Amino acid sequence: MHSGNEIQIRQREQLLAKLRASFPALSPQFQAAARFMLDHPQEVSICSMRTIAAQAGVQPATLVRLAQSLGYDGWQGIREIFVAAVRSGPQPYANRAKKIVRSSSASRMLADMVEAQHRNLDLWRNVSPEALSKAADLLAAASHVSIAGFRACYPIAFSLHYVYRLFRNSVSLLRGDAGTLEMELRALNPKDVLFAVSFAPYSREIIRCVDAARAAGCKIIALTDSSVSPIALKADCVLPFSVESPSFFPSIAAGVAAVETLLAQLLAKQGRGAVKALEAAEGQLHETGAYAPADKS
């Protein structure tokens, strides 16, 4: 059974997905309006129809006609979907933390957490095999792979970078240390792939990475919490994963599982060459003393 929150968010995502699918057949005016809705879904819920029309470069009547073409009586029907989705969206971390402090016991929290992680992993298990294969193909064919994930998404991005580097050298992690993100992004070229990781609230840095990759002509793979997230809308391949958690902070368990699944597929795709590279990396780690010696007692 789905909660009211999930249903409202899903309705908005279905509407946006419908817009994306029908976009090529829309008139130029409808395309301008639809593009604004797809690129700025949060603003649809808080701005007036006239403001949205002005920012999209169309007349207010265009928004009304677009809504009617999608089966709504008028613009208000569409706006209500966006408003409901925002109201039921992720709560600020501090608000969720207050609820935990007030009401959760250790035993209840353990059970709820394990159940939530099971659900998240079950949802990942149902990911489209075609999307996973496409992601692996894009990565394998890339001249260079850049990986980006900031703040809470960083552990997922780092996991992919760390393991992928064990059997492929042409992989880098975009960090932006000391304000150097623009410098790193200037190195992107059309033969590269950007692997972007993000979930709500979406960081400004990841949006900049995706925009720069698109401008450079790179292919983009988005590992994200929604098929219509800001990075998904600009991606060539989308791998959605759930971040639901009873805790105050989103869960990254399914995101890590996604990366591990993809790494296994990449290793299998590269075959013996990848195995040899992995053996060499492992041997070097042991030789340089990266690991503590095994206890022989």
Rank of each mutant, 00 (worst) to 15 (best):
K296L: 15
M113Q: 09
M1N: 11
F248L: 01
A54M: 12
F158C: 10
A135W: 00
K219D: 14
A152S: 15
S22W: 03
N5E: 14
P60E: 00
Q14E: 15
L123D: 09
A106Q: 08
F167W: 03
N126C: 13
M113N: 14
A294F: 10
S133N: 07
T288N: 10
A213L: 05
T288G: 08
L263G: 11
S226L: 03
A280E: 11
A131T: 04
E80H: 08
L121Y: 15
S104Q: 06
L15D: 09
I220F: 06
G4L: 12
G149Q: 00
A97T: 06
R214A: 12
L19I: 03
R165S: 12
C47R: 07
V171I: 07
S229V: 12
I231W: 02
A33Y: 05
L239G: 10
P24I: 10
M113S: 12
E130R: 00
L121P: 15
Y162F: 13
L70G: 11
A116S: 15
E244C: 11
Q270N: 12
R10I: 10
V44Q: 00
E279R: 05
L66D: 08
L233T: 08
A216L: 10
G283N: 03
E260T: 09
R214Q: 09
V64D: 14
V228K: 04
E184A: 11
S133V: 14
Q31W: 02
A212I: 02
M183R: 05
I206L: 12
P201S: 14
F150A: 02
L38F: 08
A213D: 02
I78L: 07
Y72M: 06
Y93E: 11
A281S: 13
I78N: 07
L63H: 09
P92K: 01
L63M: 01
R168I: 03
D225S: 15
Q284W: 13
K276F: 15
D177I: 12
D225A: 15
P155Y: 09
A157V: 09
G89W: 01
R214M: 07
A215D: 11
V243F: 08
M109V: 03
R12N: 08
L19Q: 06
D211F: 04
V275K: 01
S69P: 04
H40W: 04
A56R: 02
L160H: 05
S245I: 13
L26G: 04
A94V: 06
A292M: 09
Q42H: 11
Q29E: 11
S3I: 10
F248R: 01
S170E: 10
T261L: 05
A258D: 04
V163C: 15
V83M: 12
